[in-house]
């Protein structure tokens, strides 16, 4: 059994007056791929945003590597290695591929591994190497997602958190990106994934949480969750 590296403990959060999370607890084990699935509006993205500090945590705690990081800003958490690849890519559109990757490696910790990480990213996504001077905003959706993941990897994450990896991508590109994810996992990276393609996500994951209306409904090893009759009915269309 590996060690838990990131824990959310009874986290409550939301937007303005609207509470979305009603006490979410989850734990991410080192070198695991952990998936959060759930319907639209169940609070998946909010869970990730609360974890990395983009959303304020109203109640509860976020613990990363045994430190309480609840109150830290998003950039401080990123510097510690808690890195989010946000939904909708959120690239620096006016900047080149290379500059986007360089900004990914902004933190002092990531900078020391810049060369190594850059080679790794170009190894995963040769297309980025070919177009390193091109502006990110001119890329297709699939290339942008590659760059978003690449930029996240440049931050030298201890936990890579990905929000909707396959959203808006063709099945072929989705397969490609999931293959990359598998390689990253095999290389020992800890990943926390929110993914609308529940079938693919559960097939690749070690552990899964099912969010329902801002609470964790079902959790367990991914293959067990995939067999759960409620999950099969609601998310897998069986």
């Amino acid at each position: 059994m590996s060690q838990s590296i990131l824990q959310l403990e009874n986290v409550e959060s939301g937007y303005g007056e609207v509470q979305v999370l009603w006490g979410v607890s989850l734990s991410v084990h080192a070198h695991y791929l952990t998936t959060v699935v759930g319907a639209n509006g169940a609070g998946k993205t909010t869970t990730l945003r609360a974890a990395i500090g983009s959303n304020k945590v109203w109640a509860g705690r976020v613990v990363f590597e045994d430190d309480d990081v609840t109150a830290l800003s998003a950039h401080d958490k990123a510097r510690r290695g808690l890195v989010l690849v946000p939904e909708g890519r959120q690239l620096f559109a006016d900047m080149s591929v290379e500059e986007n990757l360089e900004m990914g490696a902004f933190s002092p910790r990531a900078r020391t591994h810049y060369r190594k990480n850059l080679e790794r990213v170009f190894g995963f996504f040769p297309r980025l190497a070919e177009r390193r001077q091109q502006k990110a905003g001119t890329f297709s959706g699939g290339e942008q997602q590659m760059l978003a993941v690449g930029r996240g990897l440049m931050a030298d994450p201890k936990v890579l958190i990905i929000d909707e990896l396959s959203l808006g991508l063709s099945p072929l590109l989705t397969q490609q990106l999931f293959a990359t994810l598998r390689e990253l996992k095999q290389a020992g990276l800890t990943i926390l994934l929110v993914e609308q393609n529940v079938h693919l996500a559960l097939a690749l994951s070690d552990y899964a949480y099912v969010l329902t209306e801002g609470r964790v409904g079902i959790e367990g090893p991914a293959h067990e969750v995939a067999q759960n009759p409620d999950v099969r009915k609601a998310y897998l269309g069986m």
Binding site: S54, M95, E99
Partner: peptide, 17 residues
């Protein structure tokens, strides 16, 4: 470059540390 990154997408810049 960080100034330009913040100009381009402040939230993403924050996520990158």
């Amino acid at each position: 470059k960080a100034v330009r990154a913040v100009a381009s997408n402040r939230q993403a810049a924050e996520l990158m540390g």
